Every structure is written in C-alpha cells, then in structure tokens.
Lab assay of single mutants.
Amino acid sequence: MASDGVVVEIGKVTGSVGTTVEIPVYFRGVPSKGIANCDFVFRYDPNVLEIIGIDPGDIIVDPNPTKSFDTAIYPDRKIIVFLFAEDSGTGAYAITKDGVFAKIRATVKSSAPGYITFDEVGGFADNDLVEQKVSFIDGGVNVGNATPTKGATPTNTATPTK
C-alpha cells in the first residue's frame, strides 16, 4: 500500500443473489490541510450489481451534504461517478479525517463476483488547492465463495486525467 498520499479503498462485503448490500468507500491518509475537492470514477458490471443509491459517509460534515457531495450512476456506461467540492468557501466542510467517504447500496443480481474497480481520477486537492497523490484499492461483493480481489494492489495516480 502507498505510504504517502490519500488511499481510496472500496470495501469488500459478502452478499447473495437478491440481497441488498452496503459497500463502503474509505479514505485513508487524509492530509493535515484536509480535502477540499476530489472527483473520480469507479467501474462495475450492472449485470452483477444493480447500484440503487449512494449515501455520504461520516467524513462528509456539510450539514447539507447534497451541496458538497454528488454522485451519478450510469449503468449503460458501467460507471459510478463521485464528486466532492467543499461548499462553505472557508474550508469548514472539508474532509479532515480518515473514514467512510461514501456507502454504495447495491442489489446482487448474479452469482458472479461483484467487482467495483477504479477507472479514472480527475483530481484530489487540499484546502490550499494543492494537488494530492492518490491511490485506489478495488473491492466489491463476495457472492458465495467468490472473492472480488482483482486489482487489490493500489493504483498510483500522480496526475489528473480527463
């Protein structure tokens, strides 16, 4: 695992066909100046998982989280898009600690492993708008004895992609 920078880890949970599971997305290594904004994309298989919603985690402190935390689910493109932009203008609602960034709610549709993997990152910046190093650890849903650990090695991303 990367020793510096922010680590975004997609949790690994267990479920069975027809059940709804909650998959946490963790941030670790949050910089001392916090995270003022970030955007990134995960990939998944809508034939295996139906993403039914995404909720902000406990490290989102904006009293009205829909102003700073936004997501979009595109089953036709097989992606989930995340956007966080601190909304106070003063840094008061920045992410300042490690913990759960988001909770992905999904219904298991198939007995195949439900991988959720890193696809791309736009950027991560602290309260001074300084770009942060970030790496990703894939996860998803274990169905029966299947284990979604494909790509469990962190993917280092030093520069934003478009």
Rank of each mutant, 00 (worst) to 15 (best):
V143E: 10
E22W: 15
R77I: 02
D45P: 11
V141A: 12
A2P: 08
V100T: 09
D39Q: 01
S111H: 13
T107I: 06
T107N: 06
A36V: 06
F42M: 03
P160S: 12
G123T: 01
G151C: 10
S111A: 08
T147I: 12
A102C: 13
V134S: 08
A85S: 03
G114P: 06
K97W: 15
G114R: 11
P46C: 08
I104A: 08
N127R: 03
A106F: 12
V130A: 07
Y26C: 11
V25N: 09
P148S: 04
G144P: 12
V13C: 04
P46L: 06
P65A: 11
F118I: 02
D45R: 05
Y115V: 11
A125P: 00
I73E: 12
V143Y: 11
N47H: 07
C38T: 03
D58I: 12
R43C: 04
V48F: 04
I54L: 04
D4F: 14
A85E: 00
V130G: 08
N156R: 09
T161K: 12
T107L: 07
F40I: 02
T90N: 06
V41Y: 00
K12Q: 08
R43H: 05
D87M: 15
V61F: 10
V130D: 03
T66L: 05
D4T: 06
Y26G: 04
G89R: 01
A158K: 07
Y93C: 12
G89K: 00
V30G: 05
T96F: 10
T117W: 07
G114V: 13
G53D: 06
I95H: 03
V25Y: 14
P31I: 15
D4I: 14
P24Q: 06
F40P: 00
L129P: 01
T153F: 15
D98Y: 10
V25E: 02
K67Y: 14
F84R: 02
S88D: 03
D119N: 05
V25A: 06
Y26L: 14
C38I: 00
T90D: 13
L129K: 00
P56R: 13
E9D: 06
P113H: 04
V61M: 03
T90V: 15
E86H: 01
F69C: 02
V13Y: 08
T155C: 11
D119S: 08
G34P: 02
G5V: 06
A102N: 13
V7A: 10
I59L: 07
G151S: 11
V61E: 04
D138G: 06
D87N: 14
K162R: 05
P65G: 09
S68D: 06
D87F: 14
T161I: 10
P113T: 03
L49S: 02
D128K: 04
Y74T: 00
T149D: 09
A72C: 01
Q132R: 08
E50S: 10
G11H: 08
P75D: 02
K97D: 14
V108S: 12
A158Q: 13
F124I: 02
D98I: 05
N64V: 05
Y44V: 05
F124H: 00
V7T: 08
T19V: 04
G89M: 03
T149Q: 09
E50F: 09
I137L: 13
V81E: 01
A36T: 03
D98W: 04
I10C: 07
K97V: 11
T20I: 14
A106G: 14
P160A: 10
G15I: 10
V41M: 01
V13A: 07
A72P: 00
G11F: 05
G34I: 03
A72T: 00
S110C: 07
I52Y: 10
G18T: 10
D98R: 14
T147P: 12
Q132I: 04
A146E: 13
F84A: 02
P46Y: 06
V108C: 12
G11P: 07
S111R: 10
P31T: 04
P31G: 14
V141L: 13
K109H: 09
P154S: 11
T161H: 10
T107W: 06
K67D: 06
G122M: 00
D55F: 14
T90Y: 15
G144H: 11
G122N: 00
E131T: 05
A92L: 10
G114A: 08
K67H: 15
A158P: 11
V130Y: 11
V108F: 11
P46T: 06
A125E: 01
I10P: 06
G18Y: 04
E120P: 00
S110I: 05
D39A: 01
G53N: 08
F42L: 07
T161C: 14
K67E: 04
I59W: 03
N37C: 15
P160W: 05
V13T: 06
D45S: 09
F27A: 06
Y44E: 14
I35W: 01
G144E: 08
R28Y: 15
R28K: 11
T147R: 10
K109A: 09
T155G: 09
I54T: 07
P56H: 08
V141P: 13
N127P: 01
V41A: 01
F84P: 00
D138N: 10
P160F: 10
V100D: 10
G15D: 14
A158D: 08
V143D: 14
I10Y: 04
E86R: 00
Y115E: 06
L83M: 02
P56S: 11
V130I: 10
I104T: 11
G53M: 14
A102V: 05
Y93G: 14
K12D: 12
T157E: 13
P113V: 07
G15R: 10
G18L: 08
I54V: 04
G11E: 09
D126I: 00
I35M: 05
D98Q: 15
G5Q: 15
A146P: 13
F69L: 01
G123S: 01
Y115P: 08
E50G: 08
F82S: 03
R43E: 15
S32D: 10
T159F: 14
N47L: 05
A72L: 00
A36Y: 00
Y115M: 03
G123H: 00
E9G: 11
F124P: 00
Y93F: 08
F136A: 13
F82W: 13
D76W: 02
K97L: 10
Y44P: 02
G34Q: 05
S88V: 02
I51D: 10
V8R: 00
T161M: 10
P113K: 12
D62I: 15
V6P: 06
D126A: 02
V81C: 01
N37H: 01
S88M: 07
N47Q: 04
A152V: 13
T19I: 06
F136Q: 05
D55C: 13
I10K: 07
T159K: 13
P113F: 05
I35G: 02
A36C: 05
F40Y: 10
S88T: 04
T117F: 05
T20K: 14
I35Q: 05
G99N: 14
P154W: 10
I10M: 07
G89E: 00
